[in-house]
């Protein structure tokens, strides 16, 4: 099978003149390579400053990489012209940690959802409405909330809405940048399940960026551990847990508070 996404030796350097606000979150990439096959999930795990968010921005064409190639189904996104890239861009959708920041607070659910459909220009107004309600259903929301504003939704509902909006243009790849991190445990589980369902029903491919190794292992087929702009360990999820090779992976594992360990610890005081 052909990989959906092939990243080759991706490099991103920032010179000193970055905006202050971004300095905390963005760090350089130093030769990142991996392949992602259709309908699978790759979890990119690392601490802040490891470059995982920069990777997300580069893949979503929001930051130009300094060097390297990003092949999406045989097209190198880095080499594409602006017009070409605009055509490819809808195929990669990005979901952030806090959807409250990426959803227009003045619009209601329906408006948020129909905007990308309108931009496509494929549907008439009736078709748009039908597609919107279909999308809502897909993410486990109902048309009941169509007139609510993002502020009136719970964190879980907002994240579902963000997923629905990301699905609207019919993407092939979803990049989830800490998409579960701000949610409650019980809601995290719901959204994680939703993502798995969508993978089965739509054949969706995910790049799941997180600092939560436990969730990464749960949701992903493969794990890439990032450290200082490089992938230091890459392998099947269950292998990473049972036989970690790199020191960073071991550190992350040790720092992952697991409820299983917790109960075991609690039993032997």
């Amino acid at each position: 099978m052909q990989p959906l996404l092939n990243v080759e030796n991706l490099v991103k350097r920032y010179d000193g003149k970055r905006l202050v606000a971004l300095q905390d979150e963005l760090s350089a990439l130093d030769g990142v390579s991996f392949s992602l096959f259709p309908a699978t999930t790759l979890a990119v795990v690392g601490e802040s400053g490891s470059g995982k968010s920069t990777l997300a921005l580069c893949l979503a064409c929001l930051e130009p990489p300094t060097a390297g190639c990003i092949w999406l189904e045989g097209k190198n996104l880095v080499a594409l012209g602006e017009a070409e890239r605009r055509k490819v861009r809808p195929q990669i959708q990005l979901i952030f940690q806090d959807p409250a920041n990426s959803l227009n607070p003045r619009w209601n659910v329906l408006e948020i959802l129909t905007e990308p459909l309108r931009l496509q220009g494929k549907f008439n107004s009736e078709g748009i409405e039908r597609r919107a309600s279909c999308l809502l259903e897909q993410v486990g929301l109902s048309m009941h909330i169509a007139t609510r504003s993002p502020a009136e939704l719970s964190g879980g509902q907002r994240q579902r809405l963000a997923i629905a909006r990301a699905l609207a243009p019919g993407p092939k790849l979803l990049i989830l940048d800490e998409a579960l991190s701000a949610l409650d445990c019980s809601v995290q589980a719901q959204i994680a399940n939703l993502l798995m369902e969508l993978q089965t029903s739509l054949g969706m491919t995910y790049l799941f960026i997180t600092h939560d190794l436990a969730m990464g292992v749960h949701i992903a087929d493969e794990i890439a551990v990032m450290h200082q702009g490089r992938i230091v360990e890459l392998g099947p999820a269950e292998k990473i847990v049972t036989s970690p090779h790199h020191e960073m992976t071991r550190q992350l594992l040790a720092a992952t508070p697991s409820i299983a360990q917790a109960t075991r610890l609690a039993r032997e005081p």
Partner: peptide, 25 residues
């Protein structure tokens, strides 16, 4: 509902988390 990475089945199969339905809004 909290994921337990160590208890993941070895065959690469993914299982759903036993989530609590609804929300606490």
């Amino acid at each position: 509902s909290v994921p337990r990475p160590l208890e993941r089945p070895r065959n690469g199969e993914k299982v759903k988390l036993p989530a609590i339905p609804g929300d606490s809004l």
